[in-house]
Computed example of a mutant assay.
Amino acid sequence: MSEEQKAEQLAHLSGEIERLIDRVATDVREQRGDGYRQRASGFVIYLLHNSDKSPVESVCLREAGIAPDDITQTNGFSALKNYCERLSLHARVEDTIRPSRGIANPCLGIIVDGWP
């Protein structure tokens, strides 16, 4: 992958991550539940997608020379991280496996957590 293609991929991922900001507060509130309906998990996973809407496979990114640290340095991730910190939450980039969705290879996801 050329440097230009890597930059385009990172810009795409940055935009996708930035669009998550509009969903985080609602998704966390729903996942957290209320006092009577507390959920088992204390996190929300957002899978990242390529421009063709397929999940971003971690192996493909690494083969292209893009590391999770590259993604955390994008403007989109910085904006999401700052937004989460204002809500006393944490955001990170991590490999995720979603076998229930028929995805066999680890995919890149954004994990938002920080509540009990």
Rank of each mutant, 00 (worst) to 15 (best):
I71W: 00
R92F: 10
S51Q: 06
C60H: 10
G42R: 13
I17A: 01
L61P: 07
F43T: 08
I45T: 07
V93W: 02
G102F: 02
S100E: 08
R92K: 10
A40C: 14
A79Q: 03
E94Y: 08
R23H: 06
V24E: 00
A64L: 10
V56M: 00
G65S: 14
K81P: 13
A91R: 00
S54T: 09
I66K: 03
G65T: 05
G109I: 01
R62T: 11
D95N: 05
T26V: 13
E16P: 09
V56T: 07
G76E: 00
P99T: 06
F43P: 00
S14V: 08
P106F: 10
V59M: 15
C60A: 03
D69I: 12
E4A: 05
T96G: 05
G35L: 11
R32I: 14
G109H: 07
G76C: 00
Q38W: 14
L61N: 05
S78P: 07
H12N: 03
P106V: 06
T26W: 14
S54D: 13
K81T: 04
E18P: 04
C107Q: 08
S14W: 09
V44E: 10
S54Y: 02
D27E: 12
W115H: 13
P106R: 07
R92V: 09
K81E: 05
S54C: 05
Y83T: 06
V24M: 03
R29D: 14
E8D: 15
R101H: 04
D52F: 01
D69F: 15
E3F: 10
E8Q: 11
G35M: 15
Q38K: 14
L87W: 11
H90P: 09
S41L: 15
E8S: 02
E18R: 05
I97D: 02
N82Y: 15
S41I: 12
D27V: 10
R19K: 12
P68D: 02
N105P: 11
A79E: 06
N50R: 03
C84A: 11
G35Q: 07
I45P: 07
Y83N: 15
L89E: 05
L61Q: 04
H49E: 05
G15Y: 02
R37E: 13
R19A: 11
F43H: 07
E57R: 07
D95G: 08
R29L: 14
I110K: 01
L108P: 03
R62V: 13
Q5S: 04
Q38V: 14
N82R: 11
L10C: 12
C107Y: 01
R23E: 05
P116C: 05
D70G: 07
G35F: 09
I71G: 00
